[in-house]
Design a protein around this nucleic acid. Structure first.
Lengths: 226, 226
DNA sequence: CTCGCCATGACAAAACCATGACATCCCCGC
DNA sequence: GCGGGGATGTCATGGTTTTGTCATGGCGAG
């Protein structure tokens, strides 16, 4: 599991990073809001730890921006202030939980576990998906633009399902090969690209300028669900 | 949904029961074959999870007994062995799916969902069906294009019924053999194709370009109703 | 016995998709 | 801004798998 810690205080970072790594997480950190937001949006994280008081952009704004980019990973806010207003404001902006400093290590780990568990449950692909005027039904294994049926291959459905289950998180080529290909298939990476290409040509209104099957340079692809 | 877990290893039961209950299933378990068979036959379960290596009766025998009693609920075999012979023997004896230990929780849940979907969704085929200008009546077992009668064989009716019951979802050849053939017939896959071929030639306006009996490459066939 | 049904196998046709070549784009350092 | 190198877009190709289609023969019902 990959965590992103956005926190400007060096001493807190120094304390938190080992704690999280000891707990088995992969941790990256950012010392200011701008860097943090950038990594949160482009990186492939499972959870964000976000301080509210930050130089650059503040935590509330970062959280809103993350959501604007369609990223659904859970965000755990860290703050020195604990007023009811702050809490409401944070949760309103798209944060998933809220932890008031000072907190204990076990407390933090427990919150992280709870958040990851909560989101892992709905890591299953949805029963159906709508991309613009295209409707994909994973139960019926059908796909149509308006009333006109579109023929997707089995592999294309599986690739879409993986993307849909990721809920906007970028999916790397390796992850695709793991999840959409039969166990232990090791095709060249071009293969994944070709599936994406085919899906774009079938699903996107303008395949050359995709609005839903988005390339994340150096990371893979992600699904923009409008 | 009510599941019955027949498994003698305490540790596996202890791991599986909470997993299944968290997933929203009602779980009962039996620690040996005799008890398990008894509950499977008398109880009202939607699915059976069945270990093969059991004290008392072994899993294969239990499965056969369950079928002898006319119970049709899906059976998912769990086993440490994964040989082709075991698999065939299990499926031959009336099991519906097969999972080799060790398996992951999500993997098990996915299989269960698939089995329940497969057996529950299409419980009731419609009483009649209209495909273009062709009218099929499953009650009267008749079929006509306009006022002109079309002669369908018994098997063709059953194949159509299975397709109709699936409501547009693709039906695999395995599923056809399960549902449209007498218990545990193992004809070559070509047999299903031939039935579809015959149906197309009788029902489709242009058998070479079917509009209703649609091939889903790598999956099977599905019925396009309109 | 005769006829229809249908399982099996053979072969052709089609679909799918892995691979590689080349063009193009993007990011980074200058 | 301006290359340069790596990453991605795109296409053509061939091999493999899956499906279409037909012929054959066994089998059971009437």
């Amino acid at each position: 599991m990959r965590l992103l810690l956005i926190e400007d205080e060096i001493s807190l970072r120094a304390a938190l990073v080992p704690l999280l790594e000891d707990a088995g997480y992969h941790v990256q950190s950012a010392a200011d809001g701008t860097t943090g937001l950038d990594r949160a949006v482009t990186g492939n994280f499972d959870l964000i730890l976000l301080d509210i008081m930050l130089p650059g952009i503040d935590g509330f704004a970062i959280c809103r921006e993350i959501r604007k980019h369609g990223r659904k990973m859970p965000v755990l806010m860290l703050t020195a202030r604990g007023t009811v207003e702050d809490r409401i404001r944070g949760l309103d902006g798209g944060a998933d939980d809220y932890l008031v400093k000072p907190f204990s290590g076990p407390e933090l780990l427990a919150r992280i576990r709870a958040l990851l568990r909560r989101t892992a449950v709905d890591a299953q692909p949805p029963a159906s998906l709508r991309l613009g005027e295209v409707q994909i039904d994973f139960q019926q294994v059908t796909c149509q633009r308006g009333s006109h049926a579109i023929n997707l291959t089995t592999r294309e459905f599986r690739v879409l399902e993986v993307l849909a289950a990721a809920k906007g998180r970028p999916v790397s080529r390796e992850e695709f090969l793991d999840k959409a290909w039969d166990h232990r298939a090791f095709p060249t990476t071009r293969t994944v690209d070709n599936q994406i290409l085919a899906l774009r040509q079938k699903l996107e209104t303008d395949p050359a300028h995709p609005r839903h099957l988005i390339t994340v340079h150096g990371k893979g692809y992600r699904l923009e669900n409008q």
